[in-house]
Nucleic acid binder design. Structure first.
Length: 560
RNA sequence: GGCGUCGUAGCCAAGUGGCUAAGGCAUCGGAUUGCAAAUCCGACAUCGUGGGUUCGACUCCCACCGACGCCUCCA
């Protein structure tokens, strides 16, 4: 596959959208700055991985061979401090948080990463890189530290659009060792008791920026295609990376610098994990701010509560360069939209007897007969071509869902139209295209986890649905409606269909609730001398291994 | 202060120098349903304010107001 000229990518370096071209034909190298693993991840750490996962999927779909690297910074002051606080090693701190990070990525469906290098695994490359910078006159050793000589780099400041004069701070604690306050550390000498590595300049550890230059060179080469990260990394991190790599190689480091927007919790609270949160100190519960401790540990819990697909979908609704206001109600709202797709997938099964998640759509961009889906298909790709506009692309997914539902309605595919093979084929094409496009976004890749409550709930619900169907057949709507109403507080919804009722929802405690509903139904039936219904309840529960025992204080149920 | 980003309906959010400014949530009608749910159809925006450029701007330029980011660690 050759270049893809219709794709435009916004480049921070030029502050414009540019046509996409690659360093090597057909190949794309991507480097995304990953986390410093001194603590648990927060949702803001997922923005980059999710969008780059989509970018990788899309470029792969367009025929490129993508190599995507996400680094892990596992040596740093904060890790050392955290290890000391907790009385464990820096390595322990890193391992714990890397696991958390990777679990979170997996839950959000981020599975396209090719390499996951850790700074501590690349010490040789880092030291060699620093040595080369010294040799070429862009860095100098000073009292066991090594600094990058910013004044030697004429291009310094080009990414963040500032002059060296503007970057001059007070030089920090190590100012006395620097030639210029703007110089930054490539190697930091070890203080007593700190983890350290041997180097030509004495024992120490790498500065923050050098690992990315060394690791990207190792895995992607001196010049590669896309470098990503949060907008907050533009300066100083990425500016310094460019300085290091381009001075060392005398070649461009990256073609496109792509920075994602940051998450905020509240319109006035600043970015998540940002300054306003750190300054807030103890959690005062006010202002909608998320304290660092709460925010830092919250992602795994949030995923558990909301589900990874919802969070991914929520993040993808907005263009990646925008600021996103994050809140749980907003995620839940996104989930409501998602549910309408899940219902359509069940409808597909009712019509065709097949599983939506088992559909194998085309995996490469190209001409295929897409029938009624064609306009939306083209708009979807046009949106992705325009700087990976996932928000616009998702709009087309909803459009496809609407078309599919309408087609199903118009052709009565769940009933009489089921045998209309041409119509079913057209309907299938709509769903296949929906699968093809949602694969690019990495959503709807696997069926949602079964409702909480497990197998017993499914069995008991079947009993409830059967009983209700019989009531309806006898026009005994008082009973059938009472059942449906009683399920509502348990977060279980019933939908009546031509082929029988379907239920969704439930969760922890739902089994008890449903059982109580049946027990109550049996009691009221007995009161109204409807012994047929009362006995049916007991007998059918017995058939699934549940026995009812009437006691003085009420009826109890047990599962064999 | 310097350098940037942004301001589209009740909320979220695409997009365009000129036909009806996507889509989602919510709300209100209608079809359908025993009643619901689901689904479909329909209603719901003079695009922050004020100027300018233009035959024509929400889209380009300037100013102002407001929000946010970076300039120190940060995805």
């Amino acid at each position: 596959m050759s270049a893809h000229p219709t794709l435009q990518i916004y480049n921070t370096l030029t502050r414009t959208k540019e046509p996409f071209r690659t360093v090597a034909a057909g190949k794309v190298g991507i480097y995304l700055c990953g986390p410093t693993v001194y603590d648990k991840a927060h949702i803001g750490h997922m923005v980059g991985p999710v969008i780059f996962d989509c970018i990788t999927r899309y470029l792969t779909y367009c025929g490129y061979d993508v190599n995507w690297v996400v680094n892990i910074t596992d040596v740093d002051d904060k890790l050392i401090n955290k290890a000391n606080e907790r009385g464990i090693t820096m390595l322990d701190v890193a391992e714990e948080n890397i696991k958390d990070y990777r679990d979170n990525l997996a839950a959000l469906g981020v599975d396209q990463i090719s390499h996951f290098p850790r700074a501590t695994d690349c010490m040789d490359e880092i030291i060699a890189f620093i040595a080369q910078l010294i040799e070429r006159g862009f860095a100098y050793a000073s009292e066991g530290d090594v600094y990058f000589d910013v004044l030697k780099d004429e291009a310094y400041g080009k990414l963040s659009n500032r002059s060296v004069a503007e970057t001059l701070g007070d030089g920090g604690d190590q100012a006395a060792r620097k030639r210029s306050p703007a110089d930054f550390a490539l190697w930091k000498s070890a203080k007593p008791g700190e983890p350290s590595w041997e180097s030509p300049w004495g024992p120490g550890r790498p500065g923050w920026h050098i690992e990315c230059s060394a690791m990207s060179k190792k895995l992607l080469g001196e010049t590669f295609d896309i470098h990503g990260g949060g907008l907050d990394l533009v300066f100083p991190h990425h500016e310094n990376e460019i300085a290091q790599s381009e001075c060392c190689h005398a070649a461009p480091m990256v073609t496109y610098w792509a920075h994602n927007g940051l998450l905020r919790r509240d319109p006035s609270a600043g970015k998540i994990g940002g300054k306003s949160e750190r300054d807030a100190g103890a959690d005062d519960g006010g202002g909608g701010k998320m304290s660092r401790s709460k925010g830092a540990g919250g992602l795994a819990d949030l995923i558990k509560k909301q589900g990874g697909e919802r969070i991914r979908f929520f993040l993808l609704r907005t263009h990646y360069r925008s600021t996103v206001l994050f809140s749980e109600p907003a995620i839940e709202e996104a989930g409501i939209g998602l549910d309408s797709f899940h219902r359509l997938f069940k409808r597909y099964t009712r019509v065709t007897g097949k599983d939506f998640y088992a559909i194998k759509p085309p995996t490469k961009r190209g001409a295929a007969a897409r029938g009624l889906a064609t306009p939306s298909y083209e708009k979807f790709l046009a949106a992705m071509d325009d700087d990976f506009n996932t928000g616009g692309a998702i709009g087309e997914l909803f459009e496809l869902a609407r078309l599919a539902n309408k087609y199903c309605d118009d052709h009565d595919l769940e009933n009489a139209g089921k045998t209309n093979t041409a119509a079913v084929a057209e309907f299938t094409t709509l769903l296949t295209t929906l699968k093809e496009l949602s694969n690019i976004l990495g959503i709807f890749t696997t069926a949602p986890a079964a409702s909480g409550g497990g197998e017993l709930l499914s069995q008991v619900m079947q009993v409830v649905i059967d009983l209700r169907a019989e009531s309806r057949a006898k026009k005994n709507f008082a009973v059938s409606d009472a059942i449906r109403d009683a399920l509502k507080p348990l977060a279980i919804a019933i939908e009546d269909r031509a082929g029988g009722a379907e239920w969704t929802g439930g969760g922890d405690g739902a089994v008890d609730g449903v059982m109580q509903l049946l027990i109550n139904l049996r009691a009221t039936s007995r009161q109204s001398k409807d012994f047929a219904t009362a006995d049916a309840v007991r007998n059918r529960l017995a058939a699934i291994g549940v026995t009812l025992e009437d006691r003085a204080g009420g009826t109890e149920w047990t599962k064999a």
